[in-house]
Design a protein around this nucleic acid. Structure first.
Lengths: 204, 204, 204, 204
DNA sequence: AATGAATGAGCGTTCATTCAT
DNA sequence: TATGAATGAACGCTCATTCAT
């Protein structure tokens, strides 16, 4: 957007309020779950009154919708950007390791949003779920591509079932939301350990 | 049971109703989440009336409590039993593989209960959470023992960080709840593939 | 009743249970009010189960009915008996003083029942209220008679409005339920002080 | 009120609604008792919907609390004001007679509130009861002061037990709630008759 | 752009009552 | 006589949502 049609300061304040609401909602959705979070709690956290939320969002579901979509997009885009930033002839394993590190970092950095996405996916209305599923699908295929490159280049064994391997690796990554402690390993250290285990295995 | 002190049919009927309620609740908690599940839905699913639930449970929270506790116990006990059934001199890797297969099987077989445990752990009252945490803790230590045995016997490399390895492997297993499809691989097949990846790794 | 048609021991047990229920109910009605008292509380206090109450009473209202009726009858009958026991030529003032002492004693001695009567009179169904009102009415007239005798015999001044005097004196007596403390004056001492005030007044 | 800091019409409307709810509640509490009164009844009487009550009060108990407190305060303050308005050298008997007349008038004028106070005192939560008891205590001591003055000035006999006399007289007054009929004596006439009986007695 | 006031639908829960045993 | 199990109706209360201002 190059030219604002709305006076800059006003528009910015409005956007800021909107974002504040989303952040508050994401935080509370993660902490208490979607159903157990009230609009009054969100409003209070965002330092406004409940009725005002409706100036920015049409319904509570719409907020969840936006939170969830952000939760998947932010990871997808970060990973894509990080991998794209590598030199074109980077090895498949390096590409995968970059994806792992970035996925892990973003997943945990935007934990309120990514948690909301994971926790509510099953429970959300078909409309929202379908839109989300589509993005997840694309993201999955993106990873499948990364795995394939590594297998084609001989960095992953031919006998490996790639779709299982993807679920296996991403499962481990996503599960970190359940236990990751910022006082423990930094996410890049953790990513390294995970990649080592994934490629070399645990056996002697 | 050779001599019943309680009229068999009556006592069983009552127990059966109780169990029906728990099953209905577990199913709906997984499907819609705890907060979004109403007692009227549970009652309807259990083919009774909402008020009757209170003959068996003191509150909705108490139902969740019991569902969650079952969700962790059923897995723990199954794994312990399966590993104990192995011959005493079974190799560390075999013990781990048995644990993986049993954990996976039970996790998915009682998915309504195990899901409830996972999904609601963060949101549940401190009392319930603490009781649950204790069981989780014991179960974690049980796995730590299995890993240690395998490392001591040289079946897992010395340089492997066991606590990371445990989180890595169990993360992958637990995450299957999010995607497992009964029409795909049977759980024992899946377990084998996971174990192969875990021990041998994906690299050439 | 001269000849029992029901084996004595059984009938007695049944009557005893019935009375236990009434006592429990009266106590709880006074303590928590009628609406706030549950049949399960009454049953528990009477050491039976809630369903069993229906063997003895048709409904919760029926219990209240009986409790309230007892609450007024027990006082009425005690006062009537005590006054009748006086010699026929007893003075009007003595008769009144006897009535006061007995009313006060019985009111407080059977406080659970008499309280129930007072507290619930306004709120009770028309049927119950009407039956109760009739007894109250008779009792009032009985007192009016006592006052009249004393006035006719010159023991109460001619200028005294008897119906006001009756409300004045009985009001004071009935209100003791709100404050009487068994550790303070015994009821007969209290009655004497009240009578002194009533007849002689407080002025010099 | 010369300068309003709050938009007059808005603030008044809100306050008016609040007061309407209190009046409706007091009326129904007296008529049916606290437990037997539903919030839907209160709402209906106040011409709003049940949910709206919670915009003004946190719970049903909170309403009762406020009703009861008003029930004792309104009497206390009216009596204090009326007595204070007398000339400083007013006789003890005149002060007492003024207190009687004002107590009686206010008790009956705000009967819904004063009844609620009396009927529910025993059943109410300890917190509410304690707060109420404190006010009652103060009011009692205020009366004790009035009696003492009259005794010190020789208008009440020395041999009269003042604490009994106070319970005796106030008992009679408070009991009028049970029987007072607006079609009978006006409250000031009634007060005069009561005072006459109290001071001069009924005997010849 | 924001809010105070109100609402309707529905929630978890209670309870008098019923009835087969 | 007595009770375990069940129910239906209603209760106190919550909350997403609306709307005039």
């Amino acid at each position: 957007m190059t030219a604002a049609t709305v006076p800059a300061s006003e528009s910015r304040k409005s956007d800021r309020t909107r974002q504040t609401i989303l952040d508050a909602a994401a935080y509370l959705f993660r902490e208490h779950g979607f159903s157990a979070t009230t609009l009054r709690q969100i409003a209070s956290q965002a330092q406004i009154k409940a009725g005002s939320i409706y100036y920015y969002f049409g319904s509570k579901d719409e907020i969840l919708d936006e939170v969830m979509e952000h939760g998947i997009r932010v990871v997808y885009e970060a990973v894509e950007n990080a991998v794209s930033a590598l030199s074109e002839d980077a090895a498949g394993r390096l590409r995968l390791e970059t994806a792992v590190a970035t996925h892990l970092y973003t997943l945990l950095r935007y934990g309120d949003y990514t948690s909301a996405n994971i926790q509510n996916f099953r429970h959300v209305s078909p409309t929202i779920r379908d839109r989300n599923r589509a993005i997840r699908q694309n993201y999955s295929e993106y990873w499948t591509g990364l795995f394939k490159q590594a297998q084609d280049s001989g960095e992953i064994r031919q006998d490996i079932d790639l779709s299982i391997a993807r679920l296996y690796l991403l499962g481990t990554l996503n599960w970190t939301i359940e236990w990751y402690d910022p006082n423990g390993d930094a996410t890049d250290v953790l990513a390294k350990k995970f990649c080592a285990l994934f490629f070399e295995g645990a056996a002697t």
